[in-house]
C-alpha cells in the first residue's frame, strides 16, 4: 500500500491534474489556452515523475524516458482532439 510520503506525492499529482481538468473546462472555447494547459499538465507529469523517483533515490534513465513518453503521448492525444 501507499505510505505517507507516497500519499503526499500522489495527492500533489492528483490536485494538479484536477486543476488542469478544471482549467480545460474553463477554457472550453479557447483552443490556445487549452493547448497551454495541456502543455503544462504533460510537463508537470514528467516533472512529478522525475522528482518523485529522485526523492526516492531510484531515478534512472529508463524511468525518466518512461515519464516523458507518457507525457508526450497524453499531450499528442489532446492536441489531436483539439486540432479537429
Amino acid at each position: 500500500m501507499l505510505d505517507d510520503k507516497h500519499l503526499k506525492h500522489y495527492l500533489v499529482l492528483f490536485v494538479v491534474l484536477c486543476l488542469c481538468l478544471a482549467l480545460l473546462l474553463f477554457f472550453r472555447f479557447n483552443r490556445l489556452a487549452q493547448i497551454g494547459v495541456a502543455t503544462f499538465g504533460s510537463s508537470f507529469y514528467c516533472f512529478w515523475g522525475i522528482m518523485h523517483h529522485a526523492l526516492e533515490e531510484r531515478l534512472n534513465k529508463k524511468i525518466v524516458t518512461e515519464y516523458i513518453l507518457f507525457g508526450i503521448l497524453a499531450f499528442l492525444i489532446i492536441s489531436t482532439a483539439l486540432s479537429v
Partner: peptide
C-alpha cells in the same frame, strides 16, 4: 491516474 484525467479531459472539455 494521468491517462484517466486525459480521457476525462477529451470527453468533457474538448469541443470542435
Amino acid at each position: 491516474v494521468f491517462l484517466v484525467v486525459t480521457f476525462v479531459s477529451i470527453w468533457v472539455a474538448l469541443v470542435p
